[in-house]
Write a protein that binds this DNA or RNA. Structure first.
Lengths: 193, 193
DNA sequence: ACTAACCCGAACATCGCTGTACGAGTTAGG
DNA sequence: CCTAACTCGTACAGCGATGTTCGGGTTAGT
């Protein structure tokens, strides 16, 4: 069943990587960046671009998947055991920046692939956070009068909000981590006492 | 300096209103709705549409402004005096639905007009909420280790998040108000005790 | 009843983007 | 060194959107 593909030539691999990289940066700057923009920024002909990715949709999909794998690898290294509160704090402080930067690619993916496909790629990362929050609920550290799913969504929303505020100049880079983790903890913390 | 415009004819006024209405609903359904879509939905010729609004940008601007005035009128009727917590609860419960519905128009406006212009239209509503939160901070009811601006942004973000979750089918209409107000209060509440 | 304001469909001119086709040049790798 | 893989620019076809123009038909208001 293996599709028996002959290995890509070295320059082709390099170009493919350059495209992925350039697309990431172009879409980050402007989620509606066109194929022309991306090709130019990758230092590659438009035709070559289409040679690697037959349509814009497939390009965006590949870029998004690529970035999610990278984030996944980074996030996977964070220790989530022990006290749920401090674990959550570790997670937030070591990932907020990366998630914030991914905003442009995420938006492009939502436009081009639709929310469901995005959700599918997001799944692993989402589950990791959700599991931590659910564990905190079970341990009595986090509030359980709302669902773990809702808490998860809120946490991500706060991260993205912080990113937007920084882009708009209403929040500075240095103060962001503090504000974000304060807010996230406020959301998940059990109220009584 | 008055531009001395002769009053519009009655049918022109009706059409203008119909366009504003149709555009609101079209953009709510799909923020990228085209002029053709909007004209059709308004039961009006494309040319007539351009007669009233010379460009898509001006249309979106007018629609957005129109909706903000409507929301403003509604929001302005809410009593924000007394205990800040219950005042905030009143505000949230009487406005969350309206704000949630405005999502499509808001997104269209952001695409077409840019964040700054959007901000300008938003200003009054934003300030009303911000004033309440600042008052709560001064009274010692709300946390003041983060800025009132940040709290304001968070509150709106939670409302929009809830709307998105409903659209995605991960939250039901009936449970939304409770979850939203719980979360907003959790964010603004003073932590100590 | 008359006139100016308004509406309408159809056609036209651009623009930007996507995707494909061709032909010739360059490079990796055995 | 030789071939297959890869790249490049250019050109073309198609789509969908935005605005504009024109000429004839309706309708409001005095």
């Amino acid at each position: 069943m293996s599709t028996a593909e002959p290995p890509m030539r070295a320059d082709a691999q390099r170009n493919r990587a350059a495209i992925l990289e350039a697309a990431t940066s172009a879409l980050t700057a402007d989620p509606r960046a066109s194929m022309v923009d991306i090709a130019r920024q990758a230092g590659v002909g438009r035709v070559t671009l289409y040679g690697h990715f037959p349509s814009r949709t497939e390009l965006v999909d590949a870029v998004f998947a690529h970035n999610m794998r990278r984030a996944e690898a980074h996030l996977g290294a964070v220790d989530l055991t022990g006290d749920p509160r401090t674990a959550l704090e570790r997670l937030v402080s070591s990932s907020w920046r990366e998630i914030a930067d991914s905003h442009g690619v995420l938006e492009a993916a939502e436009q081009e692939l639709g929310g469901d496909r995005v959700r599918a790629h997001h799944d692993d990362t989402l589950h990791r956070v959700r599991a931590l929050l659910a564990r905190g609920q079970a341990a009595g550290a986090f509030r359980d009068d709302v669902s773990a799913d809702w808490l998860t969504s809120c946490a991500f929303a706060v991260l993205h909000l912080a990113a937007a505020e920084i882009r708009a100049g209403r929040l500075t880079e240095p103060q962001a981590p503090g504000v974000v983790s304060t807010t996230v903890l406020a959301i998940v913390d059990r109220p009584g006492r």
